[in-house]
């Protein structure tokens, strides 16, 4: 059983609200007394995921499960899907439109950042159906802690 379960609906139409779920998770983890480096890793993973959902999928649902030894994040959308996951994982590769680039995103860093800051990451995607990203950040504590 997770010690804390959080769920967020990501609004796919409002780019300015991207980051609200990540900020809320950050606050909750702080309250739980999580180490700052763990909170930072989770925040980066979630924020990049949130931005991706807004740019590419018209929003989606984020679930965060906090266990003593790990934090699991599941980001599910019903967007257009990723045709070539290996390509999408390459730094610098992006299909983001120009208006997103003008806001400082779309540099092809999102998925590589998520991979870099999570301890485990798995992507399931079907073109035309949607994408689900699973990420785990380990806390360094034992399961029974």
């Amino acid at each position: 059983m997770p010690s804390l379960k959080l769920q967020y609906q990501v609004d796919g139409t409002d780019f300015t609200r991207a980051g609200e779920a990540s900020s809320s998770v950050k606050k909750n983890l702080r309250k739980l007394g999580m180490p700052a480096d763990i909170i930072r890793k989770v925040s980066i993973c979630l924020y990049e995921g949130e931005i991706n959902m807004v740019i590419h999928a018209d929003g989606g649902v984020i679930d965060v499960l906090v266990y003593p030894d790990r934090i699991e994040m599941i980001l599910a959308d019903t967007g257009k899907g990723i045709a070539d996951i290996d390509k999408a994982m390459q730094e610098g590769w992006s299909t983001a439109p120009d208006e997103v680039r003008s806001l400082g995103f779309g540099a092809g860093m999102g998925l590589p950042n998520m991979k870099k800051y999570s301890d485990e990451m798995r992507i399931e995607s079907t073109v035309g159906v949607g994408t689900t990203v699973y990420m785990t950040v380990r806390t360094g504590a034992s399961q029974s802690a």
């Binding site: 780019f15 980051g19 900020s23 950050k26 700052a36 925040s43 980066i44 924020y47 400082g104 995103f105």
Partner: peptide
């Protein structure tokens, strides 16, 4: 988004 990144990157 600059503010959001500042918060999350601490």
């Amino acid at each position: 988004n600059t503010v959001a990144v500042a918060v999350l990157a601490d």
